[in-house]
Each structure stands twice: as C-alpha cells, then as structure tokens.
C-alpha cells in the first residue's frame, strides 16, 4: 500500500512538471497573446490529479503478462486523453474551431504519458541495476560458502 501511494505521488509530480512544460509550449503555439492570473498555477495540479485517476481506478487482482500490461497502459492513456479533454471543454462537444487545440492537447497527453512512462522506467532501471549488483554479491557469497563446506 505504501509503495503504491509513493508511486502515485511520484507520478503526480512528474505529470505536474511535464504539464507545466506542455502548457508553455502549447500556449506559445496557439495563444501567444493570452495573459493569465495566479489561478493558472492550479491547472497543472488539476491535470496531475486527473492523470492519477486511472492508476487509482485500474487495479488488477491477478498478475498481468508483459503484453497485457502494454495493452492496459494503452487503455490507461486513452482514458486519460478522454478525461483531460472532458475537463478542458467542460463536457460540451468539441466544435470545429476547437479541433486544433483538442488535437494539440491529445498529442501533449500522449507525449507526457510516454515521458512519464520513460522516466518511471529509468528510475526502475536504476533500481534493477542495484538489485542485480546485490544479487551478484549474494551469489558470490553463497558460492564461497559452498566451497568452504
């Protein structure tokens, strides 16, 4: 439970940072003249929280294979696109003039999702390397004990 909480908090902060960067890039592309008040700072936090919703809802009881996990991640990402677009357009249908913004947001969500997965994988890679080192030491110790016997 603690590890799951830690993982969700980690995902939240990664998403907040990346959404911040995406807002900067998309804003400069589509609405460079727009100015905001302090309330703009709440949006990355809201998107970060929305980004964590699928992780909270989609929880498997049985162990998934690598292939099933990839499919699950794809569904997770699509759900996220729908949630963020629904939030952005307040649930109303997307009008023709909204399409470029909606497409930009959808692409950003996909890019951010990919980056979150990549950053998570890189953190796991560091853990995996440390575990492999510990494993080698353990195997060496066991081999030395066997030789001693």
């Amino acid at each position: 439970m603690r590890d799951r909480f830690k993982e969700i908090v980690q995902t939240f902060f990664i998403i907040v940072t990346l959404v911040d960067a995406a807002m900067l890039i998309l804003g400069r592309m589509f609405r460079p003249e727009q100015q905001f008040g302090y309330e703009i700072f709440i949006y990355p936090l809201i998107y970060g929280a929305i980004g964590c919703v699928p992780s909270l809802l989609m929880r498997e009881r049985r162990e998934l294979t690598v292939r099933q996990t990839v499919i699950r991640e794809a569904v997770h990402m699509m759900l996220l696109v729908v949630l963020i677009l629904a939030f952005l357009f307040g649930g109303r249908p997307v009008r023709r003039e909204d399409v470029p913004v909606a497409a930009g947001v959808a692409v950003s969500v996909v890019v951010i999702y990919g980056l979150v997965t990549l950053i998570g994988w890189m953190l796991d890679l560091r853990t995996a390397n440390a575990m492999t080192e510990d494993l080698r030491r353990l195997q060496q110790r066991a081999a030395e004990e066997d030789e001693a016997v």
Binding site: R62, L64, T69, E73, W121, T127, A128, M131, L135
Partner: peptide, 27 residues
Amino acid sequence: GFVRISKSVIVDLMKVTAIRPALNGRF
C-alpha cells in the same frame, strides 16, 4: 535459495543472471 517473486512463482536466486525493469513497477 528459493524466493517468492509473485503470487504464483518462486525462483532459485542462483539461477538468475540479471534483473531488468518491466512496465508498471515490475521487474
């Protein structure tokens, strides 16, 4: 030297050559 690594698998650590990350916090 056998260790439980999931609900349905136990593995001999002496037979493991490396640990790599998989998706979703698994290895």
